[in-house]
Simulated scan of single mutants.
Amino acid sequence: MQIDWWTLGLQTVNFLIVIWLLSRFLYRPIRRIIQEREAADKAASDAAKDQLEEAQAVRRTYEDKTAQLAAERQEREADFHKSLEAERDKRLEAARKEAAQLLTDARAKIEEDKHQALQSLKQQIEALATDLARVALRGPCTVPETLAQVQAHLDGLAQGDLDTLKVDLQAKDAAMTVVMAHGLSDEEKAAWNACLSKYFGADVAVVFTEKAEILGGAELHFPHAVLRFSVADRLKRAAQSLEV
């Protein structure tokens, strides 16, 4: 086999030229691009790592803050519940004291009302006993005392009520009936007429009648009203007071 050294040399030169051209125009740009991409990837990886570490730090900070806020909230809730319980206990104690005071006041008021009622009832019983004794003895002061009661009652009437009684007596054939437990003398009738004319006019018609059931005192019967000053009525009211 014969080797053509010129051909071999030319082919070698051509191969080296191709290698140089490939290295110059292909391999170097590719290596540069690869290096640039590797550098960019490394930079991106480092940036991502830094961002990840920063995110983890932010997360840890957030978790710490969240835990701190939760602890503070629990502490505030505990303090709030304690304050609520303290306020509730305070109000319950105040309500208990107020209820106890109200109960004490109510008992005192009941005792006072009871005492006053008993005193009033005692006075009524004493007055009734006196009236009954006078009725039994027919004492001479029965009519004047009854007139005094009638005058006191009429003096205490409101003007409107007194005018109503006057109008009631102005009807045709209207008359006032004075009911007594026993008959009256002419002098006693005159005293009654003088007393009644003072309030209802001198021309008021007065009729006197007897009714033993009233026991004592008197009743004034108008056409549409009755004023009672009798012992029987006072006994009835005293009995009603005892029932209450």
Rank of each mutant, 00 (worst) to 15 (best):
M1S: 13
Q2L: 09
D4N: 15
T7V: 12
T7S: 12
L8M: 08
L8F: 07
L8W: 08
G9S: 10
L10T: 05
L10C: 03
T12H: 09
N14L: 12
I17S: 12
I17N: 11
W20H: 10
L21K: 05
F25M: 07
L26M: 07
I30A: 15
R31Y: 06
R31I: 14
R32Y: 11
I33M: 10
E36P: 00
E36T: 06
R37M: 13
E38V: 13
A39M: 10
D41N: 13
A44G: 03
S45D: 13
S45C: 03
S45V: 08
A47I: 04
A48E: 13
D50M: 04
E53S: 10
E53N: 09
R59L: 08
R60L: 05
T61G: 12
E63Q: 08
E63W: 02
T66W: 10
A67K: 15
A67L: 14
A67F: 11
A67M: 10
Q68G: 08
L69Y: 15
A70K: 15
A71I: 04
R76G: 01
E77A: 05
F80H: 14
H81C: 03
S83N: 15
L84A: 06
A86N: 13
E87F: 05
R88P: 02
L92K: 13
R96F: 09
E98N: 07
Q101T: 06
L102D: 05
T104C: 06
D105C: 05
R107Y: 08
R107W: 07
A108Y: 06
K109P: 01
K109C: 10
E112S: 14
H115N: 14
L118I: 08
L118S: 13
S120G: 06
K122A: 07
Q123N: 11
I125T: 11
I125A: 08
E126I: 03
L128K: 00
L128W: 02
A129M: 05
R134P: 00
V135G: 04
A136Y: 03
A136H: 07
P140W: 03
V143S: 00
P144Q: 01
A148N: 12
Q149I: 02
V150D: 00
A152I: 02
A152G: 11
L154A: 01
L154P: 01
L154C: 02
G156M: 05
G156Y: 02
L157M: 15
A158C: 06
G160Y: 10
G160N: 14
G160W: 08
G160P: 03
D161F: 01
T164G: 13
L169W: 10
Q170F: 04
A174R: 09
V178E: 00
M180I: 06
S185P: 01
E188G: 00
E188A: 01
A190G: 04
A191P: 01
A194I: 02
G201D: 03
A202P: 04
A202T: 14
T209L: 04
K211L: 07
I214D: 00
L215K: 08
G216E: 02
A218S: 10
A218Q: 04
E219I: 08
F222P: 05
L227C: 06
F229K: 00
S230E: 02
S230H: 00
V231F: 00
V231L: 04
R234V: 00
R234F: 02
K236H: 12
K236G: 06
R237A: 12
R237H: 14
S241L: 14
L242P: 03
V244L: 13
